[in-house]
Design a protein around this nucleic acid. Structure first.
Length: 281
DNA sequence: AAGGATACCTGAATGC
DNA sequence: TGCATTCAGGTATCCT
């Protein structure tokens, strides 16, 4: 669901459409989503949009920022003059906004709008002073991430000292950030490693292969604009297409692309885990 | 202290 | 038919 590629796709969209806009007013329809004093963002101009792991940060020029986590079903949708004409799918969506899942509405200058929708209400939006980002437990405890500060050497160190099986380790945000259920399953398939293997039992060659496989599937996810399972959409309300290219995720009963074996589904660390017993050793 | 289980939610799919 | 149960997964929290 929303993992590094999905959240990064949203970030790019927000960066393209929101920077330079001033927040005129905010409508909070479901108070539990928002923490902090929402009035602090009024009059603030959006200067940058950053991502750390699966978390987003919208920086304002008035000393405050919005820290946002969309969890499983959050959506950040831009509505305004900069929507490209060719995007037609979205017209239906836009005519329905705000809808019953719209919990926060940011009214921007020039009559533009940013909607926060979340049908399962797991996400959060926190308003804090600029310098306090690392005081938030979520950001403070994030592990290193791919394409930023996770090197192969560091990856190997993290895996070797872990006492859990490899798949739950990959989705532990405190160890490595950005990877979730979809990309961890697919990377283990590409690396031909059994998700149940104890992390510390992996050889250096296997760790290198897994590192490269994670980079490959995350890049693929970025290339396809994320995986639109459930309710993930980008900042323009458009869907990604990585779900059409899943290697093992959601493919139980179907054939493995590596060896033709049958993909099985088990529970591991309380999460659906998909793999091929024939080639993932 | 690390790691596992459960709660938080709702809608879709499945069960009887 | 229709109501109840199960499942989905990213944290946050509690427990061992």
């Amino acid at each position: 669901m929303p993992e590094l590629p999905e959240v990064e796709t949203i970030r790019k969209g927000l960066e393209e459409y929101l920077i330079g806009h001033t927040i005129i007013d905010v409508e909070v329809r479901l108070p539990k989503i928002v923490q902090g004093d929402i009035s602090e963002v009024k009059g603030g101009k959006i200067v940058s949009v950053r991502r750390f792991g699966k978390g987003l940060v919208i920086d304002l020029d008035n000393g405050y920022l919005l820290a946002i986590h969309i969890k499983l079903t959050g959506q950040l949708i831009y509505a305004g003059k900069k929507i490209p004409q060719k995007v037609k799918v979205i017209k239906q969506l836009y005519s329905s906004l705000p809808n019953k899942w719209t919990h926060v509405i940011f009214h921007l200058d020039q009559g533009e709008t940013l909607f926060y929708n979340d049908f399962r209400q797991f996400g959060w939006i926190k308003i804090i002073p600029q310098g306090d980002l690392k005081k938030l437990v979520f950001f403070k405890e994030l592990g290193p991430e791919f394409f930023r500060d996770l090197t192969l050497e560091l990856f190997e160190k993290i895996i070797k000292k872990s006492n859990t099986s490899i798949k739950p380790l990959l989705i532990d945000q405190k160890k490595i950030s950005g990877v979730g259920n979809i990309y961890s399953n697919d990377a283990l398939s590409l690396a031909k490693i059994d998700p149940r293997r104890k992390a510390s039992s992996l050889t250096s060659d296997e760790i290198k292969c897994l590192y490269e496989s994670l980079e490959t599937v995350l890049k693929r996810g970025l290339q396809y604009g994320g995986a639109s399972e459930l309710s993930y959409i980008n900042a323009l309300g458009g869907e990604g297409s990585y779900q059409k290219h899943f290697l093992v995720y959601g493919r139980q009963g179907q054939k493995c692309f590596n060896c033709g074996g049958t993909i099985e589904k088990i529970q591991l660390g309380g999460r659906g885990t998909y793999f091929c017993k024939l080639c993932q050793k």
